[in-house]
Design a protein around this nucleic acid. Structure first.
Ligand SMILES: [Zn+2]
Ligand SMILES: [Zn+2]
Ligand SMILES: [Zn+2]
Ligand SMILES: [Zn+2]
Lengths: 132, 132
DNA sequence: ATCAATTGCGTTATGCTATAACGTGTGCGA
DNA sequence: TCGCACACGTTATAGCATAACGCAATTGAT
């Protein structure tokens, strides 16, 4: 899915996520956009739904938050499985891809005849700075 | 963490999860235990907290649910990273371990000096039966 | 035996996350 | 012009998780 031009609300939500240091919850995004006329969670969730579909935003399942893709301009969906390392102290998120991991997981699913649709890999812990 | 004898509430919650076909949400567990005196979510969450700590229950982050470990009697924490394949149609969950995946992720974290505490791998899709 | 610390438990209240359902307006092709 | 798709706004509701209080039983020193 390539990203078509964003609508006003989509652009506002994306902008907040891009400027943020780390992942944000939908309600945090809502609060940051109240000055721009946002009043209800659905305005955020609807924008996020599209941004996720376009692959420019990722959802972090383990912390119920959203983060802008680390590959601006590219289509992240084409990179294979996305993995995240999330620092539980400072909130910083590192996004990476490992094709060997993809292959191992795909081998497993093929062996089980499991049709994978969406794979989540999230490592929570402490980044180098916070672990010191 | 080895599992000490379970308390009454812990045993009730674990029993519900063991007998279940698939993962259950905390509130579903609560409903199933109302006849046994459960009245409030905290009774479930407190039991789950311990069961997770003992490694006899796993939390599925992507669907906010809990499932009994597929390795009764063993200490699942010692198997390395746990991965799950979750059928979005029938709810069935397959738990597996892949040391090669573990190593790849550990290599990455070592390279970034990231101190991993807890890793989530969840594949959502369709099981063989449901994909047919 | 006594005291203090720990742990489990019950209850009430609250907060956070996500979606259902309804209606409006706009643009665009048949 | 009609019909449809889509974005948007609003209200209400559903679903997930924890804070804060108090009580009782257990344990393990002193
Ligand atoms: Zn990305
Ligand atoms: Zn950090
Ligand atoms: Zn297990
Ligand atoms: Zn299935």
């Amino acid at each position: 899915m390539n990203a078509p031009p964003l609508t006003k609300n989509q652009a506002l939500v994306f902008d907040v996520l891009e400027k943020a240091e780390g992942p944000l919850s939908a309600y945090t995004i809502l609060d940051k956009l109240r000055d721009h006329g946002f009043r209800a969670p659905l305005q955020v969730y609807r924008a996020l739904e599209k941004l996720l579909e376009y692959g420019v935003v990722h959802r972090l399942e383990s912390i119920n938050s959203f983060v802008a893709c680390a590959h601006p301009g590219e289509n992240c969906h084409s990179h294979g499985i996305v993995a995240f390392a999330i620092c539980e102290s400072c909130g910083q998120v590192m996004e990476f891809h490992d094709h060997e991991v993809d292959h191992r997981l795909m081998d497993w699913t093929r062996g089980k005849k499991f049709k994978a649709e969406k794979t989540t890999i999230e490592i929570r812990g402490l980044c180098e700075a916070c672990a010191a």
